[in-house]
Design a protein around this nucleic acid. Structure first.
Lengths: 335, 335
DNA sequence: TCGCCTTTTGGCAGCGCTGCCAATCCGGTT
DNA sequence: AACCGGATTGGCAGCGCTGCCAAAAGGCGA
């Protein structure tokens, strides 16, 4: 193997053709196993490829080929700090890898304008599909996505209209189900503890569903604590301590997610408050640790991996679909 | 804005040139703000771009341009299930975004052959840089990376020789420091509890450093539990229960990471074992929740985001560097 | 052995863009 | 009024690959 590739000029298909003593078209056919070629040609090309260490240039391939069949998928997620999105990515890449499709990712930091810029940048690679998070986008993002002439999949949220395909679950319904659970268990002095809602719109939808359902029972939140910044156990712990200082009579807390709830649980442990006897805790997401807690966390499990997988299926699918994968309420032992 | 783009033929630079009434080269110069052009030309092009909704085709751009300047970085990580890698990605994308570089990612599932396949696939996009995890690769991977004529950065681990640039910390040193801490605190009956070492080589290096250091004090592990599958709190809890069943006299446990340690902590809470009085726990990574625990977890904080950032800096940098970012031992209250 | 049909093959245009180069334009000089 | 240097501009080759087409090579029955 030629280790000393003069860096600057990489091996091209033409080099392979010369080395193998066949035409360029033949090399192309062999490499893509497309069209017909003799066994002999196949062998000579394979040898030449190995000898030269040839790596195809897909930039050129996609440019030359029909339309924009790039085998690339552009993915925009709002964050990597929240486990949910890596999980989503995991389902996505696993399923897409099987189809030989690679992901180009962009992280928007929950900023719609950044999302738009990322979409424009991603589209410049002429991806075969564009995967976005949530249903709320700038008009510019929507226009770009529509004009791209490619499959667009919006993931996670189904509470609203989508551009093309939509895969997820109803965040409002999650909030509603969580409220019904708490009310059904007899809790009345319920507070909400969350991270910044202005940026995490889906958490806002859950809260809206939660409050609406409380209202149906003639109840209202008896406390609401919104912590700035992203969700984290530290934030959950500090938040619950703040909440209890203000409203010592609380009997249940609905958290924006499990990370926050874990922090709340730690706060209770530290303060010696019985869970759920003295105070009940309810989370969201159904993360790994929730089931391992001494008292399994009461929460809602979301089908994150499955959303990724189904989104990948949408990328391949012919028609745009709208898939609601639902969620599972886990009773647990903390509420 | 023309909403009805006949899908199949997207707007090209030539269209923009015609619309703006200028030559292609001028459009190209304006768009890249490269070379000189009149104010008037700039305006006409900008208008045409807006009117047509033009999105440049970078496939063509990179193909035409010099060398392989793609503004793409190929990234291979072993997993998305372990928070460490999303954190790494986060540091990476943040810093790379600022330079207008996009990441194409591949997930190897801790499989070196898969990694090689991914590297080949990524190289076919002619990325400007290749970022790998760890120092152990197949000969094929190394050959590909070398032949690519691009910057290669290996992240996280510095215990060994790299292909080009290396950014991380010494896992062996982490294990050694952890052992010194536990021994210094007087623990003698120490066990190890980890996830599958065959796949996570860096966990293996930590354990090696740990055991070597124990040996220097004339000690040896008095128990070792390796759980199949990835690390998780559930696995940590079950593992500690198994370990205690076999060796009820344990006085400390070194976990492969914080997730496992959290599970161990839950096991202690559930069994009513005092931490660290009855049994001490020591983790690895310094995740968010560690500090929020009623007794902050004793662990080692790794500079994950910073590794990502520095790796991004290496991508841009002229010369290959070798950067050891070290780590911080957090005394905590569990060991 | 010849002709006909199928398989295999190579040449070449062109994908959308950039770099190079020569042409054109502009304002001020002599 | 002819001239000059720099700013601005357009034409065009070519990046590496694929699709199309016509040419060449086989295969086979008559």
């Amino acid at each position: 193997m030629d280790d000393l590739q003069p860096p600057g000029r990489l091996v091209t298909l033409t080099d392979v053709a010369r080395e193998a003593g066949v035409g360029e078209s033949t090399v192309s056919r062999v490499l893509r196993n497309h069209g017909s070629y003799s066994k002999r040609a196949g062998e000579r090309v394979a040898e030449a490829v190995a000898r030269l260490g040839y790596v195809p240039n897909r930039l050129a391939g996609s440019l030359a080929g029909p339309g924009a069949s790039t085998r690339l998928a552009g993915v925009v997620i709002p964050s990597l700090a929240n486990v949910v999105f890596p999980d989503l990515l995991r389902g996505l890449t696993t399923a897409l890898d099987a189809e030989g499709i690679q992901c180009v990712i962009g992280v928007s930091d929950y900023d719609a304008d950044r999302e738009e810029a990322l979409v424009a940048a991603l589209l410049s690679w002429r991806p075969a599909a564009l995967l976005l998070t949530g249903l709320e986008h700038t008009p510019g993002t929507v226009a770009l996505a529509r004009a791209g002439g490619l499959r667009v999949v919006e993931m996670i949220d189904t509470d609203g209209a989508g551009i093309d395909a939509v895969v997820g679950f109803s965040n409002r319904a999650v909030g509603a189900a969580s409220a019904r659970h708490l009310v059904g268990r007899g809790y009345r002095r319920i507070a909400y503890l969350g991270h910044d809602l202005a940026v995490d719109l889906r958490a806002g939808k859950r809260l809206a569903g939660f409050e609406d359902t409380l209202a149906e029972s003639g109840l209202a939140l008896c406390g609401k604590e919104i912590r700035p910044g992203p969700s984290s156990p530290g934030s959950g712990r500090a938040g619950l301590e703040a909440l209890l200082a203000r409203r010592p009579d609380l009997d249940a807390v609905y958290f924006s997610n499990d990370d926050m709830a874990l922090g709340g649980y730690f706060a209770c442990l530290a303060a010696g408050l019985a869970v759920p006897g003295r105070i009940a805790l309810f989370g969201f997401n159904g993360l790994d640790f929730a089931a391992a807690m001494p008292q399994p966390l009461s929460t809602v499990r979301t089908p994150r991996l499955e959303i990724g997988r189904q989104a990948a299926a949408c990328v391949m699918g012919e028609r745009a679909k709208r898939i609601d994968l639902g969620f599972t309420l886990i009773e647990g032992a903390t509420a």
